[in-house]
Design a protein around this nucleic acid. Structure first.
Lengths: 132, 132
DNA sequence: GCAGCTTGCTTGAGAAACTTAGCGGCGAGC
DNA sequence: GCTCGCCGCTAAGTTTCTCAAGCAAGCTGC
């Protein structure tokens, strides 16, 4: 329509599809160009469906690629896709790690890790005991 | 050739499903517990299908959740799912390691920890030296 | 004028991924 | 005994995502 394209910062009111279409248009990219830039992770056909709101919850994987291509924050897309509640940009993603790295974290190769896991499974299958 | 596949089967030949089942069993988690720990991102039914090899390419999103829950490196899962070329032996895998948090200490009994350490020493004595 | 090629987007069919509901089995408590 | 709850699993359904084709508009040369 009118030659007015600017990335308006409407925090709410824009659906994911509208937002994606907006960003893409303002960057003057074609669907196929986006597909190319994303390394083929999103097909142009699928992107079209996305922009038309035909997809409710695209996988975060796809959204991440699009965020990279478009240069917009990943959290924004996740928010618009309904994965995280539209918070006031306080803490976006929970950054809790919480996994204890203990056993030989200095020098475990993949092979060793697998071998140890198998061995541990073997050990426990011999015992056959459940503690809790 | 190293005859180290004395435990169960070929170490790098583990499919994604076998690996996932192994890790889960080692941690003595039920399918539903994993579903819970992952915040409902993976359903227990789907996890069952995964472990039985009924799914070819689970989305990276799912794999990431599982990596966090299990405390295994995300790259390993991606590799086994065929997203990145499988490392032939250990050069690609060992290009950067250090976030290996496979064995949480609170899940290991003292006996198991000792046995694993012993077995790891045994493994390495067979293979020789591992350079940084 | 209008055939032929290219470019941008959409559509439909179909295959995978993924979920929900429910099954049979096994152990713990009444 | 017998019920209750959790285990792993599966069958059936829904949704995502891809491939191949199609439509409309713009640009060439004739």
């Amino acid at each position: 329509m009118t030659g007015k394209e600017s990335v308006t910062n409407k925090p709410t009111g824009q659906t994911l599809g509208e937002y994606l279409a907006n960003v893409r248009t303002s960057k003057q990219l074609s669907l196929r160009e986006v597909e190319e830039a994303a390394g083929g992770i999103v097909s142009n056909a699928y992107l079209s469906q996305l922009e038309h709101g035909r997809i409710n919850k695209p996988s975060p994987n796809i959204l991440h690629s699009l965020a990279q291509v478009y240069g917009v924050p990943y959290e924004t897309l996740m928010e618009k896709a309904g994965y995280i509640a539209a918070s006031t940009s306080d803490q976006t993603a929970s950054r809790r790690h919480g996994r204890v790295a203990t056993f030989a974290k200095d020098n475990l190769t993949n092979e060793e890790e697998e071998a140890l896991l198998e061995y541990l499974a073997f050990l426990r299958s011999k015992k056959g005991k459940r503690s809790p």
